[in-house]
Amino acid sequence: MSNLFIPNPKEVESIHILREVAAQFEKPVLLFSGGKDSITLVRLAQKAFYPSRIPFPLLHIDTGHNFPETIEFRDQLVAELGLELIVRNVQDSIDQGKVTEERGRYASRNTLQTTTLLDAIEEFKFDACIGGARRDEEKARAKERVFSVRDDFGQWDEKNQRPELFDMLNGQIEQGQNVRVFPISNWTELDVWEYIKTENIQIPSIYFAHKREVFFRDGMIWTANEHVFREEHEQVEEKMVRFRTVGDMTCTAAVLSEATSLEDVVNEIRASTISERGARIDDKRSEAAMEKRKKVGYF
């Protein structure tokens, strides 16, 4: 038996939050993107309820434009841990005429996900959706609560948020409302990477440097792929790259990198001078991009 348990303050805070979700809500769900943050959440949930199984399912909103490596990874993780996985497809929302596919140079299914997500929440009557968003990612996220109440339309009212005092979480909601829960709110990108390294957590291969067909636009590196709009003059080249986030292929830019191991990645993040969302094409649309998307129910 080992002796004194010395907690990692950020880890125990996240575990405290996950236990509150399980205790305060009837139908929680973990929003799983296959990205490192949601993978970290799965590990934290495993720890929170051990030796019980994670007491809520995973929900993946599939844009249809995911990196295949991510989907493969997702299915493997679910099988290994015996988790329940629900997948809902943006393609279905398009086919049902609920949303219209964007066209042109910057066409992306990223914003369309919101509709599919809100429909899934209604279909399963989820009252709490656990997400891997962090406050350090973006200015609008910096003001997000741990328990963030959304109305029937999934809207976020940033001026009317419940104050969160000490570590007491108030998950009481009215019929039709739901709560977005962010257990790793207080983690930074470096925290997540260091945790993945210490815990030896498996992550999709696209996080590590690999050779890929890409093209350059607006100073960013785009994946050359059937799902990504490309002008004739935009030359495809093979480069050694990796991804810092794994969103939809159409809005996730790669970075040039030689980091092939976790150790390399952590060192690269430490030395990095570009923020993680700096490689998110969706945030570049305007200074208030994220805040606007959040107000209408984005993750």
């Binding site: 350090d136 940033e158 001026k159 207080n186 930074t188 208030a288």
Partner: peptide, 30 residues
Amino acid sequence: ATDGLVAEREQGITIDVAHIYFNTEKTNFI
């Protein structure tokens, strides 16, 4: 760097609690 929300940028004042993270070699700060 810190005034996050549109309404605040318009008014030039901070209106809610925002969390900011930085670290030095030995310490994490929130």
